[in-house]
Design a protein around this nucleic acid. Structure first.
Length: 552
RNA sequence: GCGCUCGUAGCUCAAUGGAUAGAGCAACAGGUUUCUACCCUGUCGGUUGGGGGUUCGAGUCCCUCCGGGCGCACCA
């Protein structure tokens, strides 16, 4: 019996009580059903009696009593009781719960997916770093979390496109080109240029690959250095992200936005909506119509488009390409952009609560052995994504970044992340997967074909089996809530609980026969349970982009 | 100054307005002649920064104060 079925049963009973005249209240279409923290409170619990008490004009416990009586005899339920101020705790029949093992094994990789977001076309934009340097730790959090959000949304049935907006236009690119060119000539990089050691590397490589580049006329040479450096740096970012298992459906160049006329088209739409005005020779967007704290310039008095103009055009372009929701993932240092981006959507005639969504990720602080590693881009003293991955590995890096909500500040210790122990939950979860895989492998070697031997679900009645089944039953709801709240850390935290539930089960429930024993029906049932647990962990790890090893 | 955001155990962090605020680490005490001990069991640890309010019920929502981070360009 699933979570939803419990909820439906409760609604059915409430409707019956109203029809019988025992209860005078408007029955909600869905009710809150929780898994109680304490196992003493049963498999499921509902607070519906507390919620309905006021409108029904009855004491919460009186309603709860009616509900308990009505739930008696519902197939799959073993019992219900009133607790505390009016909670109703529900216990499931163990056979009904055990059937879940079969459901999961048969569903395979589809277990946990849903169609709650079916038909929704979502654009998820994240990282969007300038192609003027390596990706650093600040980008890494969104690389992991953004990718996981996209995976979770897709699991909930949405059509998702991941995009990286490449800021390849404007003065920063010129400064980048100038910095590399200066380095190639052995000159000091301009004060406001880019200073990291990678500039020297780029310069050396470009000179080696482009003989004669240093003899070009200065204006031409600057462009040559800029474009070569751009190409190399973009490729480097793409390779690093590929290594990090974060792929993008589209790398959207700011230049193409301008070249394709999308900027003019975006401006036209904003004009049509009546939020564009001129002042002091510049063209403005009246974002203050929609909660922004000041209006924003689109075209400067000198005729140049602002970066903000590109932003608005990009948003309009996303919508024109058929996305009904544009999700932006921004670092905390960009939180000032939230209101203006939402205002852009509103100025374009969209619903800023439905068509656009801006998520802010707090910054990651990194320590090594308890001592903070200072980040300074200017000094070239940054922790880059590839260095970080080199040191801790892709799995540990991704998992550790994903297991915390992105909107809370985070302090990570590099040494902790490389420990292969319990202080590193990624290994705990992966170990559970490898351990189950090992048991199933051994079963196969013993010639036990548990799938064809069939499942007697009622045999899964041990407290630890019951607990594990209960955890596995939660998975679809966890995925759905992770998608709805854009919080993939819920999946990671859940996997840790599943791993714990499995280890606790494994500790006291022998799965395989010993020595010459024949395999028992109970052991076969436990193999089904192992198969189900393996599937859930594998599915969950896939959602966060972490590998599920067969052996460790 | 204005604005956004965060503040939970010694540390790093969970908790979709629900029951006795939970994990891991750290500290201490135990467990496997057996399927992967990277495991399991137990003990210790809290005025959820302070105060007020809303609610049957507040770590969660509102107000206020304190503390940390960040942002306030015709820059990109």
């Amino acid at each position: 019996m699933t979570h939803d079925e419990v909820g439906e049963a409760i609604v059915a009973v409430l409707n019956r009580l109203v029809a019988q005249g025992d209860l005078a209240v408007e029955v909600p279409t869905s009710v809150d059903v929780d898994r109680p923290k304490s196992r003493d409170h049963g498999d499921y619990a509902t607070n519906v009696a507390l919620v309905l008490a006021k409108s029904a004009g009855l004491a919460p416990r009186a309603i709860a009593d009616l509900l308990v009586a009505g739930l008696a005899g519902v197939p799959g339920m073993a019992g219900a009781e009133v607790a505390g101020p009016g909670f109703v705790n529900i216990r499931l029949d163990s056979a009904a719960q055990g059937e879940l093992a079969r459901t999961i094994v048969e569903a395979g990789t589809a277990y946990g997916t849903s169609s709650t977001l079916a038909g929704s076309r979502i654009n998820v934009e994240f990282i969007s770093a300038n192609p003027t340097g390596p990706l650093h730790l600040g980008h890494t959090r969104w690389a992991a979390v953004g990718d996981a959000i996209a995976r979770v949304l897709a699991a909930a049935g949405a059509t998702v496109s991941k995009e990286f907006y490449v800021n390849d236009r404007g003065v920063q690119m010129d400064k980048f080109g100038q910095s590399v060119m200066a380095a190639a000539h052995g000159q000091a990089v301009p004060e406001d240029g880019y200073h990291g050691g990678y500039i020297l590397d780029l310069a050396a490589r470009i000179v080696a690959e482009n003989p004669g580049i240093k003899e070009l006329p200065e204006a031409e040479q600057l462009i040559a250095f800029r474009e070569n450096a751009y190409a190399l740096q973009l490729t480097q970012q793409q390779q690093v992200l590929e290594l990090f298992r974060t792929s993008f459906d589209l790398w959207y160049s700011e230049r193409t936005l301008h070249d394709s006329g999308a900027v003019e088209r975006g401006l036209d739409i904003l004009r049509e909506q009546g939020h564009v005005f001129e002042d002091g020779g510049a063209v403005w967007l009246r974002t203050t119509d929609f909660d922004d704290d000041k209006d924003r310039v689109l075209i400067k008095a000198d005729g140049e488009y602002t970066y903000f103009a590109s932003d608005t055009a990009y948003y309009v372009d996303k919508r024109a390409r058929g996305f009904d929701r544009a999700i932006y993932l921004l670092g905390a240092d960009h939180h000032g952009y939230v209101n203006r981006l939402r205002a852009v959507a509103a100025c374009a005639g969209d619903d800023m609560d439905a068509n656009i969504e801006v998520l802010i990720g707090q910054l990651v602080k990194i320590t090594r052995g308890g001592v903070e590693v200072k980040l300074s881009k200017r000094a070239g003293n940054i922790v880059t994504l590839d260095e970080f991955v080199d040191e801790v590995g892709v799995d540990a890096a991704r998992y550790t970044l994903i297991r915390y909500p992105a909107d809370s500040p985070l302090t990570l210790d590099i040494e902790e992340m490389t420990k292969r122990t319990n202080d590193n939950p990624v290994f705990y979860v992966q170990y559970a997967h490898a351990r189950i895989a090992s048991v199933l492998r051994n079963a196969e070697e013993l010639g036990i074909d548990w799938r064809s031997l069939g499942l007697d679900a009622g045999l899964l009645s041990h407290e630890r089996e019951n607990n594990l089944l209960g955890m596995l039953a939660e998975y679809p709801r966890i995925v759905a809530s992770a998608a709805e709240l854009r919080e993939p850390h819920r999946v990671a935290r859940y996997l840790e609980e599943v791993a714990t539930a499995y280890h606790r089960f494994y500790d006291v429930c022998r799965v395989l026969p010993r020595g010459d024993e024949e395999v028992s029906s109970e052991q076969v049932a436990r193999l089904w349970l192992c198969g189900a647990a393996l599937q859930v962990i594998a599915n969950g790890l896939e959602l966060v982009g972490v590998s599920a090893p067969e052996r460790m």
